[in-house]
């Protein structure tokens, strides 16, 4: 119905990235560079009496990410996403059980520059970049076979291309730089989560780069399949990807120059919508870049002034 406000399932504003984005640099001992990234929605599991059941049910209709997880004889267990935690105060019987992250968790390791394998594929002009994106079998709702999928192969290639020009590969002829990204938990936007972490891991490895590229997905959600009533939103989560008229555009942006080195789209949009999506991406890029920078700086807590 036109005019009905498009509501995000987790209660976020249209331009908000998911509530929890954390990056830690240098987490793996053996790798030359590494980063661990968490990107998702922090959920609170709350035990609620049947007396509050009707309230919770009504909220679930508006915000589908308020979910009943279990019904026991003395109550129900309900999941609340962080942007809607204020609602919990309105319940008389709420008892907090625990908190956990529903989102993406990625470990990225960088090795390099290192000796090229196979040797004959090395270039006398620059380092060869390899990017390998893989998902753990337990990362997704249905157990994924460990065999490399076509999707993983495509993502690996596109990701590699997004990073190549940002790195000063010409400084390391006859070598190879490897980026390995393992998604151990997935909830929409895994390829951009992996890339955001990969940029940090590359910087952590000391690979010279022009900037720290940022990756995110921006798109559109609607109330109807015909896409007559829609909103442009940043960082779609899994529930949003499945909404009517949903469009998802992963992108990689070099923040300082505001240039796109990766752009993909799934869906059908107008030129105006595309414009808005790109603009929102650029707007959020700086926010993400700040998180990346802080991860690297945090590794060195005290800064020297002299010596």
């Amino acid at each position: 119905m036109s005019g009905e406000k498009v509501i995000r399932p987790d209660g976020r504003n249209y331009e908000d990235l998911r509530d929890t984005i954390r990056i830690e640099a240098g987490v793996l001992d053996r790798a030359d560079g590494s980063a661990y990234l968490e990107w998702g929605t922090t959920m609170k599991l709350v035990k609620v009496d049947k007396s509050d059941g009707k309230k919770v049910e009504k909220w679930s209709e508006t915000w589908p990410m308020i979910q009943t997880v279990e019904e026991t004889k003395d109550g129900i267990l309900v999941e609340f996403p962080k942007p809607l935690w204020h609602l919990i105060d309105e319940l008389k019987s709420a008892e907090e059980v625990k908190e956990y992250l529903r989102g993406n968790k990625v470990y990225v390791a960088v090795y390099g520059p290192r000796e090229p394998i196979p040797r004959h594929e090395a270039s006398p002009y620059r380092a060869i970049l390899r990017y390998r994106y893989t998902m753990s079998p337990f990362s997704v709702p249905e157990r994924k076979s460990p065999k490399p999928s076509r999707r993983e192969t495509e993502i690996s290639m596109v990701s590699r291309l997004a990073l190549e020009r940002v790195l000063f590969l010409e400084e390391f002829p006859m070598t190879m730089i490897d980026v390995f990204a393992e998604v151990i938990s997935a909830d929409a936007g895994t390829r951009v989560a992996a890339l955001t972490a990969a940029s940090v891991a590359l910087a952590d490895a000391g690979i010279p780069m022009r900037d720290i590229p940022v990756a995110l997905a921006v798109g559109r959600i609607c109330t109807d399949e015909d896409a007559t009533n829609c909103a442009i939103v940043a960082d779609l989560n899994k529930k949003e990807e499945d909404m009517p008229g949903a469009v998802d555009m992963p992108m990689v942006i070099v923040p300082r120059k505001e240039e796109f080195t990766l752009l993909q789209m799934d869906g059908r949009v107008t030129k105006e919508e595309l414009d808005q999506i790109l603009d929102l991406g650029l707007k959020k890029a700086k926010e993400l870049n700040k998180i990346q920078r802080e991860a690297l700086i945090r590794k060195y807590e005290r800064v020297t002034e002299n010596e």
Binding site: G40, Y100, L101, R102, G103, K105, F138, S139, V140, P141, I184, S185, A186, D187
Partner: peptide
């Protein structure tokens, strides 16, 4: 640490 993967 246990219980760290949402879909597992």
């Amino acid at each position: 640490e246990t219980g760290i993967i949402y879909n597992a």
